Simulated assay, not measured.
Amino acid sequence: MFTGIVEELGEVTAVENLGDASRFRLRGPVVTDGAKHGDSIAVNGVCLTVVETADGEFTADVMAETLKRSSLGALAAGSRVNLERPTAVGDRLGGHIVQGHVDGTGEILARTPSEHWEIVKVSLPPQLARYVVEKGSITVDGVSLTVVDAGADHFTISLIPTTLALTTLGIKQPGDPVNLEVDVIAKYVERLLGADGAERAK
């Protein structure tokens, strides 16, 4: 489990095409400190398994399904990425419950800067719209954020200077893809209410 509080702005140093998968090498001295084979690290909100570590870098295999359902397939050497290690038992839950299981991808539609923050508009796949509510939580490229406005096909988020400086959301431009993970609690509530309604209809 993650919290959506990015620990480090890392970098892709190499991408190897394996046919039905890709092997990524990523630089992240903070998240690789103490990491070992089999550990998990979230990369732009996608939970990946560490294959090996060396000199502040780690490698991870990304299967075709993940490449298809996330924006990781658009990454290349030199791409910047948000990195986060899993939450340890007893740690503060600084963001919200994030699984690292991407529900879909959106696209940066617009950026509106102001003196101290930016409003960013992001497209929203129709199948995810019902889970996104005003002042609710959403994960964008692994960053836990609060929804400002929620529409049928888009939502907006407000980015403070820290988020702009320390995550990829400070450099993403209109047209760039982003990974989206909706609040898992909303999905469980929907499933439970659906099962309850079906049972009552019998």
Rank of each mutant, 00 (worst) to 15 (best):
F155S: 05
A60L: 01
V147Y: 05
V182K: 01
Y188T: 05
A14H: 13
L192M: 06
A88M: 12
A186F: 05
T53I: 04
L9S: 10
V98P: 03
G136T: 00
P29G: 14
T32R: 09
K172Y: 08
R200W: 10
R80Y: 01
V182I: 08
A201N: 08
D39L: 03
G197C: 05
T105F: 09
S144Y: 02
T168V: 11
A76Q: 13
E190S: 09
E84A: 03
V148F: 13
P174N: 05
K36A: 13
T59C: 01
T139F: 10
D103T: 00
Q99E: 08
S144R: 02
L124S: 07
D55N: 15
G194N: 06
E11Y: 01
E7G: 11
L83E: 00
L93I: 12
E16M: 05
E115G: 11
E118M: 06
I97V: 09
T87I: 12
A14L: 07
V6W: 11
P29N: 12
I157H: 07
E118V: 07
V178P: 11
P113G: 06
V46N: 05
G104V: 03
Q173V: 09
L192C: 03
V184H: 06
V50H: 01
E8F: 09
T146A: 05
A14Y: 07
G95F: 06
G28T: 10
G73Q: 02
D20A: 14
V15D: 05
G28N: 06
T112R: 15
L159Y: 09
R80P: 04
L93A: 00
T162P: 14
F24Q: 08
A129R: 06
V51G: 15
F24K: 07
T146R: 05
R200C: 08
K172F: 07
A21M: 01
V122E: 02
A198R: 14
H116S: 13
I119K: 15
V46P: 14
I97T: 04
V50W: 03
P113I: 00
P125H: 06
G100R: 00
Y131G: 07
A88S: 12
G106N: 11
E84P: 12
V120F: 04
E16G: 11
I138N: 04
G142K: 00
A76G: 13
V120K: 08
G175F: 02
T139M: 08
G175D: 02
E65Q: 07
L164Y: 08
R69W: 09
D61E: 08
A129D: 08
